[in-house]
Design a protein around this nucleic acid. Structure first.
Lengths: 136, 136
DNA sequence: TATTGATTTGCAACGCTGTTGCAAATATAA
DNA sequence: TTATATTTGCAACAGCGTTGCAAATCAATA
């Protein structure tokens, strides 16, 4: 709980109930959540607009990050502290069975050679498969 | 042109002007296109619905594939013939300067170790940076 | 070529995600 | 406690993608 207050303070964000609850929800969630999942978990006590604006603020400050899935679905998750100020290699796992999205260790990984002329700046790897809970 | 007719035939899709024009557009485009870019290139001669339905058919048959970008934007591109019936390793490049999206060679690449219990099935790597035309 | 039947298309309407403008409510600092 | 800045809720909007249904088009046959 104090972590959350500290996180807000570090990022010059005032401590409002909405912000605190969203961060608490994302911290406790085992996987990345969509905006509607977040609002659902908060009992629809906050307006859609407010939640989106809050998420946008968090994204701008890199407090959270977003993961884009096939078909344009977007999920939000806490940014691991090791990834501040900025990470270049990101790995996420999408479970084909339960649709859960998990942030995986962000250590730089080997990347394929690109055609000449292309200069890479960062890498986002999305792995599809069966997650811990679903791979029997 | 005959390639396109053949492609439709192989996939049991009747040869309609809309399908032919969309495939022609995607084949000639140097980069992946959004639905609205496609419709724009076709001079808005086809209904949005028709274009979406056509793209969905092509996706189902793996004639094209979609690439999901940050913020939920989706682009469509021809599936390279080497990727049929199915590829497990996909690489796309997003240019931070011109916003172009390019399909990169799909040879299997080294992937990071996953936490135990996670079983990967396929890998989608999105590289951000400057493309051939935009890097200096 | 004309006819039939299946497929494709356009239109209207809808749902979902995300945004903006503005006024009311709340937080912060004096 | 008051004054100022920030945050919130509401209404409205834009864009992407979908569905239902009737009209148009395609493909196969006669």
């Amino acid at each position: 709980m104090n972590d959350i207050y500290a996180l807000l303070e570090e990022n010059n964000l005032s401590r409002t109930p909405c912000r605190v609850e969203i961060l608490k929800t994302l911290s406790q969630a085992g996987s990345a959540l969509s905006e509607s999942e977040i609002r659902d978990k908060l009992g629809y006590n906050y307006d859609r607009t407010t939640v989106y604006r809050t998420l946008r603020n968090f994204l701008n400050q890199n407090v959270i990050h977003s993961i884009s899935l096939e078909g344009g679905e977007v999920r939000y998750a806490m940014t691991p502290s090791r990834d501040k100020p900025h990470g270049t290699h990101h790995v996420h796992f999408y479970c084909n069975n339960c649709s859960g999205v998990y942030c995986i260790s962000h250590k730089p990984f080997n990347t394929p050679r690109l055609p000449s002329g292309f200069s890479p700046e960062n890498f986002d790897l999305l792995v599809h498969g069966k997650c811990k809970n679903c791979s029997v």
